[in-house]
Design a binder for these strands. Structure first.
Lengths: 144, 144
DNA sequence: AAAATAAAGGACAAAAAACTCTTTTATTCC
DNA sequence: GGAATAAAAGAGTTTTTTGTCCTTTATTTT
């Protein structure tokens, strides 16, 4: 569904949202450990999200990653789009370059409905909304 | 959603179903042209589906690929499963190795619903069901 | 100012996915 | 039996994705 890169990105963003809610910053090592991802790889990903303004960061001692208000309000769909592009939201289920109402692939209708639901879910889910449940260990970002 | 391999496989199977409905066989060149795929690549894929018994084939003059009754009744989910595995049907949306009702990732519930719909759609769709609409050019397997 | 810390950047490496080419095997037609 | 046809098989190559390593830059603390 999502690329590995995108999965790590979402998990990292949610993790950062939780750990930086009181104005703290989170180091890359802590993030990698917290979401069970390769350290250097998630560093690259966050670097990229940083350039795009989806995550904030500060260098030096006491530095790290954190989210501003807009970051916590950011929808999952924005992250998915910025990493995987909009293939998932607009592409044909069978990979046709031209697939539309007037030139549909065999699963065009059915797939459209599903895509719509995926869109809705990802539009509605916000990075910051899991913070409390995460703190209470009702939700998880890594294996036990 | 699906791998390229899987997309080609589904398109090829549907194409073969249509072209072999009267007992004819379809050559690999015709298939590749009909679904807009790399010829040698789809050949490999069909070879594999053949070994798994999902498609029939015959060598020599007048040979080619065709489907038996079971093949035409085959669901899309069976094809997806046999090529991409069941990641799509059972994996975690955020890629967690352990994600379950008792140890859920942040989108576990929402993703579960979507996965269920995808499953249903792929279980219900059968390779042979598009034959008529395809013949009437109401459905398509390649770009214009 | 020097040392320490932590992200940014760039280049590289490994693995997987997508795709190609050539030879072999089976079948049919003459 | 020999030529022609078409899939099967095997051994590549290319591209993309995933992951690693090392150097640089910015910031803070002493």
């Amino acid at each position: 569904m999502f690329s590995k890169t995108c999965e790590y990105a979402i998990r990292a963003m949610i993790f950062i949202a939780q750990r930086s809610r009181d104005g703290d910053k989170v180091g890359i090592r802590e993030i990698a450990a917290g979401i069970d991802s390769p350290e250097h790889f998630i560093a690259k990903i966050l670097q990229d999200l940083g350039r795009k303004g989806l995550v904030q960061s500060a260098k030096g001692p006491n530095g790290g990653f954190y989210l501003d208000r807009a970051g916590r309000d950011c929808s999952l769909s924005k992250i998915v789009r910025s990493i995987d592009g909009d293939q998932l939201f607009s592409g044909c289920g069978l990979g046709l370059k031209q697939c539309s109402e007037t030139h549909p692939c065999p699963i065009h209708q059915q797939f459209g409905k599903i895509r719509h639901q995926i869109s809705q879910m990802l539009d509605n889910a916000r990075i910051g909304e899991f913070t409390d449940q995460l703190a209470e260990q009702q939700l998880f970002l890594r294996r036990k």
